[in-house]
């Protein structure tokens, strides 16, 4: 049940979905730089721990320019703030806008990296198990579509090979190539539609239209999943309490407010920090366990 080798993805889809949903909601709806930095740190460490070297390089190439662009562009569009640094085309570039831009960039990267982690952990079978609970019919359509995609790609290859063998597939000019592609595509569409109707006939024959069917799911909700879910909910509850008490409030305009450092604020930060770092913690735990077990051989 754990094909991608990520420790965190061993949990039940429901626990994982709740985890990412709560994490993303908190990240999207706060402007507090401490919380956002913690969110970014968690997502960054988890992605770094599960990436291959090549993926890490590609991520750096994508995220660093994006971060800089978002951070630098904000002061050009936002002129609120009480502390002008200098003037550009008669518009003030304010300290507040610069800091706010950096904050938005942190938030954007945190959300995108968390979504990336979500995609890594939740493979399509987990998502289908989730959808199957809510809407079995949609789950059937989704899983069939996911199965048809590689089938169509393979059939595309087969048809073009056949056309080449028959001497129909010409690539002398752009137009002849386009015509050849069109012929292959036309054959593919005909085949796919006929195949779809055959599939549906087969499904009906096996009683798909009968009442009382359920979506098949391999995932069992174990005690570990329950503990994980409870932990997520508990940490989120503490964070939410902090939000409601205004401990996470932060504003950039007109002046940058100071970060709260009273005891309950620190508890809020700690709770959210643990929440955000959970996937990375599981990953580290797994590596340490592996090292320990190997050392005993």
């Amino acid at each position: 049940m754990n094909k991608n080798g990520i420790a965190f993805s061993r949990f039940h889809p429901v626990s994982l979905f709740c985890y990412f949903l709560l994490l993303l909601l908190f990240t999207v709806f706060t402007q507090n730089p401490v919380l956002l930095t913690l969110a970014l740190l968690g997502a960054l460490l988890f992605n770094a721990a599960t990436n291959t070297a090549r993926q890490t390089l590609a991520d750096i190439k994508f995220y660093v320019p994006m971060f800089l662009l978002v951070a630098l562009v904000n002061p050009l569009f936002s002129h609120s703030g009480a502390t002008p640094l200098f003037f550009m085309n008669d518009n003030p570039v304010t300290l507040e806008a610069v800091l706010c831009g950096v904050n938005i960039a942190v938030q954007l990267c945190a959300v995108m990296l968390a979504c990336k982690a979500f995609s890594k952990v939740m493979e399509s079978d987990k998502l289908l198990a989730l959808f199957g609970k809510v809407s079995p019919k949609l789950a059937v359509v989704l899983s069939m579509a996911l199965r048809f995609i590689p089938l169509l790609k393979r059939k595309w290859g087969e048809i073009s090979e056949a056309q080449k063998a028959l001497g129909y597939f010409r690539e002398e000019s752009v137009f002849s190539r386009l015509a050849s592609y069109a012929r292959v595509f036309s054959a593919l569409v005909t085949w796919a539609l006929e195949n779809a109707v055959d599939t549906s006939a087969s499904m009906s024959a096996r009683g798909y239209e009968l009442a009382g069917k359920k979506h098949f799911s391999l995932f069992r909700f174990t005690r570990g999943d329950g503990i994980m879910l409870a932990l997520t909910v508990a940490l989120s509850a503490v964070t939410l309490a902090g939000f409601l008490l205004g401990k996470a409030d932060f504003a950039f305009y007109p002046r940058v407010s100071t970060v709260n450092t009273d005891i309950f604020s620190i508890i809020t930060y700690a709770a959210f920090g643990i929440l955000s770092l959970l996937p990375f913690i599981f990953e580290v735990k797994e590596v340490l366990k592996w090292k320990y077990l190997r050392s005993k051989i």
Binding site: K137, V140, V189, V197, E209
Partner: peptide, 13 residues
């Protein structure tokens, strides 16, 4: 069921 499978094929396309 036919419409269901046709939908899946169009999504796949």
């Amino acid at each position: 069921t036919k419409r269901l499978v046709l939908l899946a094929v169009m999504v796949a396309f």
